[in-house]
Design a binder for these strands. Sequence first.
RNA 1: GCUCGGGUGGCGGAAUCGGUAGACGCGCACGUUUGAGGGGCGUGUGGUUAACUCCGUGCGGGUUCGAGUCCCGCCCCGAGCACCA
Length: 866
Amino acid sequence: MSSETRKAFPFPDFEPRWQARWETEKTYRAPNPGDPEFDASKPKFYALDMFPYPSGDGLHVGHPEGYTATDIISRARRKQGFNVLHPMGWDAFGLPAEQYAIKTGQHPRVTTERNVARFTGQLKRLGFAYDWDREVNTTDPGYFKWTQWIFLQIYNSWCHPVTGRAEPISSYTGPDPDSVRLAYVAEVPVNWCPGLGTVLANEEVIDGKSEVGGFPVERRPMKQWMLRITAFADRLADELEPLDWPAGIKARQRDWIGRSEGAEVVFQTGRADSNERTPVTVFTTRPDTLFGATYMVLAPEHPLVASITTPAQRAAVEAYQKETSSKSDLDRGVAKTKSGVDTGAIAINPVNGEAIPVWIADYVMMGYGTGAIMAVPAHDERDSEFAAQFGLAVREVVVPTATETSSGCFAGEGVAVNSSFLNGLATAEAKSKITAWLEEKGLGQKTVNYKLRDWLFARQRYWGEPFPIVWENGKHRALDETELPVLPPSLDDFKPTGTPEPPLSKATDWVRYSETATRELNTMPQWAGSCWYYLRYCDARNPQRFVSREAERYWMSGGSQRPETDATSRGGVDLYVGGTEHAVLHLLYARFWHKVLFDLGHVSTSEPFHKLVNQGLILGEDGQKMSKSRGNVVNPDSVIEEFGADSLRLFEMFMGPLEQVKPWSTKGVEGVYRFLGRVWRLVMTENQEGEWEPSSKLSATAELASKPRKVLHETIKKVTEDISSLSFNTAIAQMMVCTNELTGLEARPVTAVATLLHLLNPFAPHLTEELYERLTASWPEAAPAGQLALQPWPQWDESALIESEVEVVVQVNGKLRDRITMAADADHAAHEAAALASPKVLEHTAGQTIRKVIVIPRKLVNIVAN
RNA sequence: GCUCGGGUGGCGGAAUCGGUAGACGCGCACGUUUGAGGGGCGUGUGGUUAACUCCGUGCGGGUUCGAGUCCCGCCCCGAGCACCA
């Protein structure tokens, strides 16, 4: 094996060997409560990766970044005495598989299985300590049976208006249960994408194009399944607060929910030449500016436009409506200048009886609020711009308080003026006074509005979960639990029909459920399976329930004690690592489902993910985003081939902070590879035959001198703490320091080397197990037999960290002038005396008066002189 | 425009209850080992200077004995949102 391909250490030999051993021995199997091996005295730790969509491209180097992070902390926690749940699975339904199937004619199940096999092989080659017995696959009937079951829970529930919680539909006493279900059918304007042959959620439409494929998307009304996520809007926003999530992700979720408090105000509208009046309700967050409303604007699609428009304006109004309807939301959004048309109608301001003109304009959206606004150009920038453009009146009704400066349109808070009974009130008081006044007169009320819309839950696809729903006499009805799972029909032709009719309609036998009933033809969106997979991992093979109560309670709500996160812990997954691309969609949907399940008593926590961390994108070596077209994609397989899995793992953690965006560097991989080579040679040496044997410098009897002992214990401390704070890059740096220190010793104590291997084990599991096994073979007393992964984590000795002498910095006027050595227990006076005696200090203070001496014992002395 | 990140050597990054700026790694240079290459090992490496010095954490102020770190005002880069009334 001394060929030119010879490696610095024989990883091509030992990496597969250890991987095979872990697999056959099930080293990382996590027993559940009730299992014989389960130890209830241990605390639990649940580390979750966002499971991948098994694409045809295989793993890229971005995947192992987050996976390695969770793997390291999982391995460390296991050694620290936790029961660790660290699973992996496949989010395998979805458009790409189906698109590929349509293109190649292969059934998506076939390509999915092939892709899963490829991903699995790649993940195993990276040495992740997953409990593969808990692997889940969203396309597995044993899995989606429960996705359908959860849908039934949602379907059979409603949100009680008083408690704000999901309850069984049986507690609803009103006339029409179908009108309040959390899953309901509605005729709504949807994002129909002809290119994909399906409707899409708002979230899946980016700038008027489909997120997948970039096809144009048009609005059209269709009958669709919706989930009533808006009923949970407040809880989804409020309960973010205690979660240990990045502030940016919380902000994005809050923005997406878009809660805004204000009031609805009713204006009577009609023609100036007639007494006929129609009420129009507007929404405003600034009811205190009601006296400043100088015109009203309706969205062009507003249903009352046609009836109130005067004959003289009709042609212009209709032309404008036509123009806006042909514009995409994107065009509407980027328009540089405001546009609009006067309807000729008037609205009566309920607060002062004033008649103001009613316009239509595309800066008012039908989809938000009531689709109508009162325009206050003095205090709203959009209204101000519009008024300026069309010469509409402006009336100031709020003046800034003295400290604020007003320039042009003042949209801030201040004091009300020109507002009758509101005059002199601060904005907040004016708001509540006018709102109370409106409510008293029946002219309006306090209202909360959300940007969040109900979740469009149906897709016209083949490769997704069928709904457990049939239609009979024009009404939908849930199938019984015993009929689950509802399997998709086997179809040879799963192409979109080209019309909104889903491809499942082609399976005529399947569609016919009974003499009188037919099956729902839509399938669920890809998000469905990922809404609850973290629960299935707790009890992945349970045929009776989606997760057993015991397993759920143990893994999701704390088990016994918890690690250092106690104070803020509310239960749930202890650490969830994934990319920011799921900041709103997946994380919001999963939280919604979890809350429904919580309200119905199926799970024990109200939030699923206690701590969330986003790993940063890995860029190509050129600093650009990796992409095939740029040719800068790094393939993990070839990195493993050349440097080994441990090097890849270590490098991805050494590149920089986990959350940060950072560029790939082949030289950097070589660097950590060299480091692992040094660790290897710390233990092993090459004999004359070119074979590796334990180094003669190793010694079971040698004592560690105080300096290397200090370094070793500093390393234990830093690595332990850095793993908890996910600061893997600095942990690795410290292990490099320690390795260099131990390498420099003439006699290397086996216990010290073993300690280093323990610390490095979560990062480089193959190399460390291999070396440790060799240590065990020669020095069983110093290195007790057994896998490192299953042995306890080292403890540091505080006393080893204390030095008898310390170096103290001496500054004159804040500038570094000298360094002196002091006894560790030297007092203030001793520091001062020693510093003042320094020749360098004397030199720099010559001819000056010493004003002050600042002493930080063991650190620094600063002499102030002039 | 708004929100969230972030600006530190040639490069990735350390160090923020204010206290030695640049840990660790890459690169580079020199030395050593080797028949040579590769690899290994060792030393050095912010700028400036012969040296002493002086200057250095995006820019400008401020607080302090002392500021990468705190405060005020800007600039630049990245990500997200974007007429949400």
